[in-house]
Design a binder for these strands. Structure first.
Lengths: 144, 144
DNA sequence: CTGGCTTTGTCGCATTTGCAACGGGTTTCC
DNA sequence: GGAAACCCGTTGCAAATGCGACAAAGCCAG
């Protein structure tokens, strides 16, 4: 009685597919408008929350490899969206922060993200609450 | 009043992080034991459900690029886990199927996957039902 | 049947990715 | 005060990835 395995019911798989589709769908917006990659979008979005953040913090909170964050930051700096500055209190750290241009971009992107989010919540309908709580649960335990 | 954007509440982002963590956590199992990549695992897992499947079908259902499926299949064939055979009814198609060795591997992997799944459901606890329904909802609408 | 038009899988190529190693910086502990 | 251990960000490199192009095969109208 071996092999009653059903991929479609397997949670890591379903999450991957779902995440892939949602991210791809949404990524069109910032890619077409600003030429951002997904990694770059994440960095910028994270920076819009807290003002000056080190690479390490993003790496930890955003589930991206150090090098990925680092390279995204380099590209964003070249594009003029963020600044990189070595921290004064700890010269190992690099403080990332949005430039004026970066803030403008986020000001344009934030409503679009919100709209996308709202649409998803509409799709979820009555299941929204349960879904979000479950996601919380898995996220908080899976790492911290 | 611009920029009230909170990345942590943004669904595509949360799904990406969650999917990444779950997949990475589970991938240790089949990577250490059988040296499979994530793409290869997906192909094999899919094949364990339906006997003979074309590259195209997997590409469509599993959210992987054609070339990704193709290359994963090539590696799996070289490793002796699957066979590739051009279909008789339509010679464009390539029928993928598990070998005996492939079935053995799945027989070993299936219970481990089940155990992982059970653990996740335990983590979800009372939220499990709501979460799964929500995921269904998003998946069924996001593409088909 | 024959000449388009679509579909399927593979491959080339440029880019991205993850991992490990490295070079500075800092803390710790004697 | 200094050396060993540790932490941070960048870079090199091999592997993986996505995209477009391509050949082979099927389909379809005339």
């Amino acid at each position: 009685m071996a092999e009653p395995f059903i991929l479609d019911d397997f949670l890591p798989y379903r999450m991957s597919v779902l995440a892939g589709r949602l991210s791809r769908e949404y990524s069109r917006i910032y890619q077409e408008r600003f030429g951002l990659s997904r990694a770059e979008w994440r960095v910028v979005a994270h920076l819009s929350q807290e003002s000056a953040v080190s690479v390490r913090e993003i790496h930890a909170r955003v589930d991206m490899d150090k090098s990925k964050v680092s390279r995204a930051a380099t590209r964003l700096e070249q594009a003029g969206y963020i600044t990189k500055r070595t921290s004064i209190s700890d010269r190992r750290l690099v403080e990332l922060a949005l430039t004026g241009k970066g803030h403008e971009m986020m000001a344009e992107l934030a409503p679009l993200a919100q709209a996308f989010q709202d649409e998803l919540l509409t799709r979820l309908g009555a299941h929204a609450d349960g879904f979000l709580r479950g996601a919380d649960r898995l996220l908080e335990i899976s790492d911290g």
